[in-house]
């Protein structure tokens, strides 16, 4: 399915939207120029869903440009798939019938739709639920059907809003592999999530929204490189609190003899390492750590 690599350039430039004089999206810009997973982050009510709805042509923007290969985006010239945050299926209708209905709306002919539906149900181990009413499926399986709805028309742009919420670890892993496959097939994916570890795992570029405004944007690795080392993680069999006291490192978390110590500079961490080695403390793990995306997110929008 969808093996060919489709080249496209999606530009979201200075886009704004207001409701009753309140700006919910304020001058947001980003670009997607190659197949990738783009992380779209923000707190609840930050403007993510409104931005996605503008991108997909569900609601009109007040200003700015949204273009695909230089042409304004509308429903007709972009083949997209959307997995909304608010999951929903027709409760009394069978899995196959509702997938077929949406396939028809997306312009897929019956035969191709049938092939695609069976391919995806097989791929996500859902064939046994083929003729089951949606309300009888577990929450996780309903979510997988929702994912199939987003990808069964082989779209070039896929927007996934919280794709892993509510999934168990096995299904999360399965879905992760499918998403990574889609990128390999040349799909452009915009992913919104509150689970920062997943964004770190998947996304090369991110944008963080706070109350409608962009507070941080760029390549995730570059963003993290620009941050100083701020923690050191130590796992040992001994109590090292005396040495921490000696270096005036008072801000730390300790679980058994696992320590996460907050440091101001990288040198503080190295000085601690020297003292521990000199005193022949057996170190199982020593790692100087840069702030995680979670830390960065809290720092940017948690005020």
């Amino acid at each position: 399915m969808g093996e060919e690599n489709i080249k496209m350039e999606l530009i979201f430039k200075n886009v704004s939207k207001a409701y009753t004089n309140k700006k919910v999206v304020n001058n947001i810009s980003f670009e997607l120029k190659k197949p990738t997973i783009f992380g779209f982050l923000g707190t609840n009510g930050a403007g993510k869903t409104t931005s996605i709805r503008m991108l997909l042509g569900i609601i009109k923007k007040d200003s700015g440009e949204i273009t695909l290969d230089g042409k304004p985006v509308n429903r007709k010239n972009i083949n997209f798939g959307y997995m909304p945050e608010e999951r929903g299926l027709y409760p009394k209708i069978t899995v196959y019938n509702q997938l077929m209905f949406f396939s028809e709306l997306k312009g897929i002919n019956k035969k191709a739709a049938d092939t695609s539906i069976k391919y995806w149900l097989e791929k996500l181990n859902m064939m046994e639920y083929f003729n089951m009413e949606a309300e009888k499926l577990s929450k996780g399986n309903q979510q997988k059907i929702q994912f199939i709805l987003a990808v069964m028309n082989d779209p070039s742009l896929i927007v996934l809003d919280e794709p892993f919420s509510g999934l168990d670890p096995v299904n999360t892993e399965q879905l992760k592999n499918v998403i990574l496959d889609l990128v390999k097939q040349g799909k452009y994916i915009i992913m919104s999530s509150h689970q920062m570890n997943q964004i770190e795992e998947f996304c090369s570029d991110i944008l963080i929204l706070d109350r409608g405004k962009c507070v941080l944007q760029g390549n995730l690795k570059e963003i993290k490189d620009n941050y100083e080392t701020n923690n050191v993680e130590i796992i040992t069999n001994e109590n090292i609190e005396n040495y921490l006291k000696q270096l005036k490192l008072t801000n730390y978390n300790k679980v058994n003899n696992n320590y996460l110590i907050n440091i101001k500079t990288k040198d503080e961490g190295l000085e601690l390492f020297d003292i521990l080695v000199k005193n022949k403390i057996e170190l199982i793990k020593y790692e100087l750590k840069k702030p995680s995306l979670h830390d960065i997110f809290i720092e940017r929008v948690g005020k």
């Binding site: 429903r75 997209f80 959307y82 608010e86 999951r87 929903g88 299926l89 027709y90 949406f102």
Partner: peptide, 16 residues
């Protein structure tokens, strides 16, 4: 039913 069962978000992106 479509609005409250949240199917509308999928429906509204599939057609006008």
């Amino acid at each position: 039913v479509e609005k409250t069962s949240k199917i509308i978000d999928t429906l509204i992106t599939s057609t006008t």
